[in-house]
């Protein structure tokens, strides 16, 4: 499903280069529920950006769904992201002027689906995350946990191959965090591949596999 081979990434900081990823080898297969851990500066965000087609890498290889991802232009990357990836962010990043349903339907809008179809589909996914009754609420009228559920529905609505969640519980209290993780877990049960980036041990323990990064390298892999 997803394979990184000797992946290197540099950031160019003025005169010297910052070597962030120093040769990552990693494979995530279909249906896995993985958490990526590491302290800040370990390279976990950079790796997620590369995996999420939001950033380029300098050397090595990245295969997504058996396709080598290399030097895509923005348009190709946008289309590929839309078709194969779903994103969940720490601060939810719902569009404030749109209600829950419209937010969930947005990826389908960019796929070119008609209004009726995409609203039906969006509703289906809002039901899945238990928020069908809040379909026409604006983000500011929803609690943090509810917003993250909407974001999850948005990530799932395009039926992506992989869901990438960047600190999905970072902005939530403990109880709500667990609820969200349970929801994510239940979605994984249905066969969806999920990658969660976190720095919280208790959150990572709720996944099936923990990949620990340290100084730009894979330090340890733990099966829960």
């Amino acid at each position: 499903m997803l394979r990184l081979e000797d992946l290197h990434k540099y950031y160019h900081m003025g005169s010297h280069d910052l070597h962030v990823l120093k040769g990552i080898d990693l494979e995530i297969t279909e249906g896995e529920f993985v958490s990526i851990m590491g302290s800040s500066g370990s390279g976990k965000s950079t790796m997620l950006n590369i995996v999420g087609l939001l950033d380029d890498y300098d050397s090595g290889a990245y295969y997504l769904d058996n396709k080598l991802i290399k030097k895509m232009n923005e348009k190709e990357a946008a289309i590929y992201r839309n078709n194969t990836l779903g994103f969940v962010f720490q601060s939810f990043n719902l569009i404030s002027s749109k209600d829950a349903l419209e937010n969930v339907a947005l990826p389908l809008f960019y796929r070119g689906m008609g209004r009726k179809n995409r609203n039906d589909k969006a509703m289906e996914y809002l039901e899945l995350v238990g928020l069908a009754d809040r379909a026409h609420h604006l983000p500011k009228e929803l609690s943090g946990g509810q917003q993250q559920r909407v974001a999850l529905a948005r990530a799932l609505v395009s039926d992506p191959k992989i869901v990438l969640a960047d600190e999905p519980t970072g902005a939530l209290d403990t109880n709500t965090s667990y609820e969200i993780m349970e929801l994510i877990s239940s979605i994984n049960e249905k066969g969806k591949t999920i990658v969660v980036v976190t720095h919280e041990d208790d959150i990572s323990k709720m996944t099936k596999k923990i990949i620990r990064l340290k100084d730009g390298l894979v330090d340890d892999i733990i099966i829960n």
Binding site: A78, I79, F89, N93
Partner: peptide
Amino acid sequence: KEIGVRKAIGATPAS
């Protein structure tokens, strides 16, 4: 941020 989100979920630069 909004534009970033739109791009992340598949908006092309043209759109």
